[in-house]
Computed example of a mutant assay.
Amino acid sequence: MGSLPHVVEDCLGFLQLFSDGSIFRSNDIQFKISAVQDHSVTFKDYLFHKRFNLSLRFYKPQHVTLNTNKLPIVIFLHGGGFCFGSRTWPHIHNCCTRLAAGLQAVVLSPDYRLAPEHRLPSALDDAVEAVRWLQRQGLRLKEDENGGDAWLSADVDFDRVFVVGDSSGGNIAHHLAVRLGSGSSEMDPVRVRGYVLFAPFFGGEVRTKSEEGPPEHMLNLELLDR
């Protein structure tokens, strides 16, 4: 009889990789914060990738204070070391709510496939698919002013799209910029006008300057090297 599978990688107890290749992912995560109920912003979930059952959350400010006809779009790519995170997690939801209210913009927050079940570049491919989903909404509206989802299409400026990425989401945003190129003309009528990277996660065979600095409590070198 062979030996029983044993843990070969353990990420804080929430994600474990076993010697036989199987994976345990805990759904019992106790968050220290709860989702903010901000009535100045409404949100709605959409299935954008049917094959992988991936959804995104679309936020829209209720009361627009800026003197503008249409609102810009912010695509927010969450962090989590490519292994964790979801649009439904409280801190991610709260961040998107604040962005929508503070920037007076609509915010699109997509989920993406997570490692190690789905190796890179799966996450990047899913981010591209989220932009394509947005493109389809814009094309429907372009062909027919009454086409598509009225809640989503009203007052949305597909010509002013900005991609924001946090940590591993910043890495995805970087590669999204490389893949789409300047102006993202292939995604017409969607035009990505800029990318904002919050503490983007980059790593490789050579240490980055941030890796050489003082270790953080959770994101230490031992964990990052895995």
Rank of each mutant, 00 (worst) to 15 (best):
K50R: 13
H39S: 08
R51W: 01
G147M: 04
P61S: 04
S184E: 06
P189K: 04
F43H: 12
L54D: 07
L180Q: 10
P214W: 02
H175F: 15
T97N: 04
G13Q: 11
L54M: 07
F52I: 00
D38E: 11
P121W: 09
D166K: 05
A127T: 14
G194E: 03
R136Y: 03
A101F: 04
I23S: 07
V7G: 04
F198E: 11
L47Y: 02
L219M: 13
L141D: 01
S22G: 13
P72Q: 05
E129H: 05
N171F: 10
S40E: 11
I29E: 02
D166W: 07
V106A: 02
F202L: 13
H39V: 04
A173L: 11
A115I: 01
L197C: 09
G213P: 00
G102H: 08
G170I: 14
F58Q: 01
A199Y: 15
H6V: 03
E205T: 15
Q62P: 00
F84Q: 04
F48L: 07
G194C: 05
L4E: 11
V164G: 00
W151P: 03
I73A: 03
A173V: 08
G102Q: 10
L66A: 12
E145D: 11
D38Y: 07
G148I: 10
W151S: 04
G80T: 10
V7I: 15
A150Y: 03
S3C: 01
L47T: 13
N67I: 00
H49V: 05
Y46Q: 04
K32M: 07
G213I: 00
F82C: 08
E216L: 13
F202N: 05
A154W: 02
N69A: 13
P5Q: 01
D20E: 07
L17E: 11
D159R: 13
L99G: 03
L197P: 11
V74P: 02
F162L: 06
A115Y: 04
A199I: 08
L77E: 09
D20H: 07
G203L: 10
D125A: 14
S109W: 00
V36L: 14
K44T: 04
H6T: 06
G80W: 09
D10M: 12
M1I: 08
T88Q: 04
W133A: 09
H118A: 07
L12V: 12
Y112R: 13
V156Y: 01
F48C: 06
K209L: 12
S26N: 07
F18E: 05
D157Y: 04
E9S: 11
F48H: 10
P5E: 02
G148S: 11
F198S: 09
F31D: 04
